[in-house]
Amino acid sequence: MSSAEASATVGALGAGDAAASEPPVPPAVRRLRRGGMASLFASETATLFRRWRTWAMLASLGLIPILIAIAIRIAGPSGPGRGPAFLDQVAGNGLFVGMTALVVATPLFLPLTIAVVSGDAIAGEASHGTLRYLLIAPAGRLRLLAVKYAVAAVFCLAAALTVIVVGTLIGWALFPIGPVTLLSGGQIPVGEGLLRLLAIGAYVAVSMLGLSAIGLLASTLTVVPVGAMAATAILAVVAQIVGAIPQLEWVHPFLFSDRWFDFDDLLRSPPSWESFGDNALLQAAWIAVFGGLAAWRFATRDILS
């Protein structure tokens, strides 16, 4: 069954290109194009953002920069070297609020929300009983899995952007905004500073993709979403603990959390995209392994929920 479904999914994916380049479209292909994968992706994305829970998580992520900004506004700037990275710069330049908040959110809070969304992907449907109805629609097992992963990736981006956007807004409201002093010493104007901020947001979103794949696999192993979420969140913490133990240095380059904080390369002049690429490669490896395991598991599993 798995191979048959895989080829059907590939057929659906390829149908768009085939139809665009060749005028005579076989009826079967034309039929597949209707609706298609994009339709399910749009529907599932809309479903994610129609959940109260999604907005609650984004709102709590947005609270982090607000908390940081208000604390500094009231208590005054902290000395250099104290607190999270960039914290000492916030009072001088509001653009650093979003960056500081990302540094604060990345170890625990952000992975927690990612674990909730990715762990819920399949297990949540199973627990509602909607999985069987999606599959007999028929969504196609691999197609559904791919769409669910894509939706989790959308949430990664939305989460990172929420922190950046809220941080920038509150920073702009409470602190002076000015040219950003880079780590390499030079200064860039506000507009370019905002672009660098967005790049950092993208970096953090990409950082969470490996964890999302782990959550997706966990989600196919159980019909209890909370179990999948907890397992994913615990793995995120464990990876960071392992990453902090020097005796386990040999394993560090393989950890999905190894490059979570390497985004300061984007604050050099000119920006160095090398760490962005390395991080993307690392995450891609995790996606390949855990996404593959999830597909293998989900393609043949008996749906009894």
Binding site: L32, G35, L40, T130, A137, P138
Partner: peptide, 13 residues
């Protein structure tokens, strides 16, 4: 219902 319908590739949006 719209969500289940979107899962059916053959159903026209």
């Amino acid at each position: 219902l719209a969500r289940f319908d979107a899962a059916d590739r053959h159903a026209s949006p």
